[in-house]
């Protein structure tokens, strides 16, 4: 079975200004720089990264807010970006998104009913929608009379639930969740997450789950990818990923998480302490972009950008510490384990 969504060497560069004598040399931000991965049907694929790592750019490119600079995104084998430009409606219907901040993703001047009717009127015109709106509210466990409320009368959690209902309106098969709970309190987070997990079961959905909260990721995702400055540095099954993180950046991320029990403390890698600043995406370091902060930096790191290597059972790492078996590397390098 082909994956539901596949990214092949996706690149998205933004031009943020011009420099040079004639102001003709573009200054580019490589927000996403050669990202490849596949999401299988029914999977919750977690994408983790700090601000500026390009995770939201991946999401926005997928739903069509941006056109990729190069590379391909395929939905069930069909390219999302055709030469004609406009994405066909039957594909738009299949891929939906829930944004981070429900305060700004819901129109304050529209009632919940109007908010939920808009996608319905686009994808199923000439139909009465009130019944479907009520059905959607029931699906997300909100009282049906909420359809006459306006966003300002809802709490943060309820707004996010309305945003989820809106994403469900077109009966999609794939939903992008861009930090769906990071604007909410932890006491509400559980309700939203469990709702999302139940909806996935019920409607056979696949999710691309974007977050910077690794503890949350551990409990939600089936597979996890870590992004750093526009590139993926590690991909693995969630359980394997947390048991045996390989990339030094992943280890740094995990060891930085504040946890609430001794049991969790024991799971954090001890050797890698966070240091250094996240470089600006305008000025990405040469070679491996992490080398300035890496405790295991070698001579080769500032010179050569490492390749993605499969270290067994689908655990992919992009780091010189894990050289590919087939390639010959310069002498004098040691694998630190």
């Amino acid at each position: 079975m082909p994956p539901i969504l596949e990214y092949k060497e996706l690149k998205k560069y933004f031009t943020i200004g011009y420099r040079g004598l004639l102001k003709r040399e573009p200054i580019t931000v490589k927000a996403v720089d050669g990202v490849s991965f596949a999401i299988h049907k029914g999977e919750i694929f977690g994408l983790v990264g700090e601000s500026g790592s390009g995770k939201s750019t991946v999401a926005y490119t997928t739903i069509g807010m941006y056109r990729p600079t190069s590379g391909v995104i395929e939905f069930q084998g069909e390219s999302l970006f055709t030469r004609e430009g406009k994405r066909p409606r039957h594909i738009k219907k299949e891929i939906q998104i829930v944004f981070q901040d429900p305060g700004s993703s819901l129109n304050p001047r529209r009632s919940v009913k109007e908010i939920l009717e808009l996608p319905l009127s686009i994808h199923q015109p000439a139909k009465k929608h009130i019944g479907r709106v009520a059905e959607l509210l029931e699906m997300v466990e909100l009282p049906v009379d909420y359809m006459y409320k306006y966003p300002q009368a809802l709490s943060g959690g309820e707004k996010q639930i309305v945003a989820i209902a809106r994403a469900l309106a077109t009966e999609p098969s794939f939903i992008i969740l861009d930090e769906p709970t990071s604007a909410l309190d932890v006491s509400i987070q559980g309700k939203i997450i469990n709702l999302l997990l139940r909806l996935r079961q019920e409607f056979h959905l696949s999710y691309l789950f974007i977050t910077h909260d690794l503890s949350l990721m551990r409990n939600v995702a089936s597979r996890v990818a870590i992004m750093y400055l526009g590139k993926i540095c590690e991909v693995a099954e969630a359980s394997e990923f947390f048991r045996n993180p390989k990339h030094p950046y992943t280890q740094m991320l995990l060891s930085s998480i504040p946890v609430v029990s001794e049991e969790e403390e024991a799971l954090k890698p001890k050797r890698v302490q966070s240091r250094g600043e996240i470089p600006s995406p305008v000025n990405i370091p040469s070679g491996c972009s992490f080398h300035l902060r890496c405790p295991y930096k070698m001579d080769i790191c500032p010179r050569v950008d490492p390749q993605m290597v499969d270290t067994g059972s689908g655990h992919l790492v992009r780091c010189h510490l894990y050289p590919a078996q087939t390639e010959n590397h310069p002498a004098g390098e040691q694998v630190i384990t």
Partner: peptide, 10 residues
């Protein structure tokens, strides 16, 4: 409510 690094759901 805090998700645990050791897993076990939310």
């Amino acid at each position: 409510s805090v998700p645990r690094l050791s897993g076990g759901g939310v």
